[in-house]
């Protein structure tokens, strides 16, 4: 009994790490652009496709494919950022919703147009199971947890100490004042977006070996899983997002075991409703963004 629960908690932490890396990008983009990025899952998909393309067409090793996947996502993010996301700064909320939904459709269908709508098979990664403290996990999952931790520590350091990180925090607090003191808001917005999209791409490449199937519509589910997390964590709150992602991951895992797999996806939305009712600013309130 105890063993099962511990194992399910470990399972939850693994899926929580994936959610965390995707959600942190989305929450940062919200902090700076004040727009929910409905195309966020699409960057996750693009990262996976980039790596799949590198492995399937050029037979490259997985670590190289990871780099290619992330770089490809970042390049596309530069284009979208310049043409779409920069223009959202200061625009009404509807503009952000419509623009990102549109981008999501375009990215998804462009990929389907080029590679076809069928399921592809991702063959890279480290899928051999290893036993750790009595649990068997694929090596890739341990890698996911480690990379997740590195990403979060890196982000904390960046927003606390680097110039760009401080600018991001400033923009998320007051756009007008930033403009007054000479911070290039559009520049900051663009870089935040590229960073967020790149992280989503990274998370896609990292999970591809354990999720195996690659297809154009794979990002949609991710977007909808991410929404409750960033709201639970408090929009724009990096640390809160990390904790919320872990809570959701573990809760889902326990529900799947003790209630039934079919109820798994309800966890996210049920918590979303509860949080919106009782703590609309997120579980950790909005003392500080970033």
């Amino acid at each position: 009994m105890f063993y099962t629960i511990t194992e399910q908690v470990v399972n939850g932490i693994v899926s929580g790490s994936v959610y965390a890396i995707v959600a942190v990008g989305m929450t940062m983009i919200f902090g700076v652009l004040r727009a929910i990025n409905f195309a966020h899952g699409e960057y996750y998909m693009l990262g996976t496709f980039g790596a799949w393309f590198a492995i399937d067409y050029f037979d490259l090793p997985y670590p190289v494919a990871v780099v290619i996947g992330v770089v490809a996502t970042a390049v596309i993010a530069v284009v979208v950022g310049n043409f779409v996301m920069q223009r959202i700064v200061g625009a009404p909320a509807e503009a952000g919703v419509l623009a990102t939904l549109g981008v999501s459709l375009i990215l998804q269908n462009t990929v389907i147009l080029f590679f076809g709508g069928s399921y592809k098979f991702f063959s890279g990664g480290y899928i051999e199971p290893v036993t750790l403290f009595g649990f068997t996990l694929a090596e890739q999952r341990i890698l996911i947890i480690i990379v997740g931790l590195i990403v979060f520590i890196g982000l904390e350091l960046m927003v606390t100490y680097s110039r760009m990180g401080k600018a991001m925090r400033a923009v998320s607090q007051n756009i007008e004042c930033c403009a007054v003191v000479g911070i290039d808001v559009r520049h900051v917005a663009l870089w935040t977006f590229i960073l967020g999209a790149g992280l989503a791409g990274l998370s896609g490449v990292l999970t591809a070996p354990v999720n195996v199937s690659v297809y154009g519509g794979m990002g949609e589910l991710i977007t909808f899983k991410t929404l409750p997390i960033i709201i639970m964590g408090g929009l724009g709150n990096v640390r809160g997002t990390f904790v919320a992602a872990m809570i959701l991951g573990v809760a889902e895992s326990l529900v799947a075991t003790y209630v039934g797999l079919q109820f798994r996806d309800t966890v996210g939305f049920a918590t979303l409703m509860l949080v919106l009712m009782w703590r609309p600013h997120g579980l950790f309130s909005a003392q500080a963004r970033f």
């Binding site: 399910q8 399972n11 693994v14 999720n211 895992s253 797999l261």
Partner: peptide, 21 residues
């Protein structure tokens, strides 16, 4: 045991450990 998964589900670890036990 009886479980149903949503199309697009990617995490079966919990339910598979339950089945194992």
């Amino acid at each position: 045991t009886e479980d149903y998964y949503k199309e697009g589900e990617v995490d079966f670890r919990s339910v598979l450990s339950k089945i194992r036990d």
